[in-house]
Design a binder for these strands. Structure first.
Length: 209
DNA sequence: ACATTAAGTGATT
DNA sequence: AATCACTTAATGT
């Protein structure tokens, strides 16, 4: 409950906070756990308390592409669109760090929309920011060269984990950016020469935040 | 000591 | 920017 107030207290009225506390299910997720798989039907929506979640798209060959991260105070917009159409998830959500969240049954969604203006505001706002992130993701993929994409990826990653020391392997990055490990290694080397990052085995320190 | 996995690099397309 | 082929370095058993 304290957690809830700390993160959402400024957003929601007391009544709503109380309801969330009563109905929501507090959940703890470990880094790397898959929260939503492509094709899943979603029956509850998550409210992030802390930690970060990575949103991935996948093509028919199983090739991945990282779209964006969501953080504390965010909710999963996929959930919202799934509620509307009662359709399946188009994305995969993987815990980027250990995550604490509250699961809200989707039925409450529309009920609270009518009952609480702060909730309606929150949902609309979060739809908006997710839309913006989506556009940014498109811009990144379409307009940025691989080296710029890579640096942005590293910065985002450092940002959401509140840590400039990233525990990653080159091949994992390659997977997220949908390129090959060799390319990533080369570009990372270049970024290191430009003093943007420092390389170690299984670890990267981001300097230019 | 040996095998395995991660990372670095030249050459080619 | 991708791929191949190979090297070197770090780590596990």
């Amino acid at each position: 409950m304290e957690d809830l107030i700390e993160n959402y207290g400024y957003l929601f009225e007391d009544e709503l906070l109380k309801e969330i506390h009563e109905i929501g299910i507090y959940k703890s997720v470990k880094e790397g756990d898959v929260l939503i798989e492509i094709g899943d039907y979603i029956k509850s929506m998550p409210l992030l308390l802390n930690g970060a979640i990575k949103i991935l798209r996948e093509d028919k060959e199983g090739e991945e592409l990282a779209l964006y991260f969501i953080e504390r105070g965010d909710t999963c917009t996929m959930t919202l669109s799934c509620c509307v159409g009662n359709s399946k998830s188009e994305i995969r959500a993987v815990a980027e760090t250990d995550v604490h969240l509250i699961m809200i049954p989707v039925q409450k969604m529309s009920e609270w929309m009518r009952k609480y203006s702060s909730w309606q505001e929150f949902i609309l706002q979060s739809y908006h920011s997710r839309m913006m992130e989506m556009l940014e993701a498109i811009d990144t993929i379409a307009f940025l060269k691989m080296d710029e994409r890579l640096l942005k990826y590293l910065r985002d990653k450092a940002m959401v984990s509140h840590n400039d020391q990233l525990q990653v392997k080159h091949k994992d990055i390659a997977q997220d950016l949908h390129t090959s490990r060799v390319v990533v290694s080369r570009l990372l080397k270049k970024l290191e020469r430009d003093n943007k990052i420092k390389l170690f085995r299984n670890r990267i320190k981001v300097i230019a935040l």
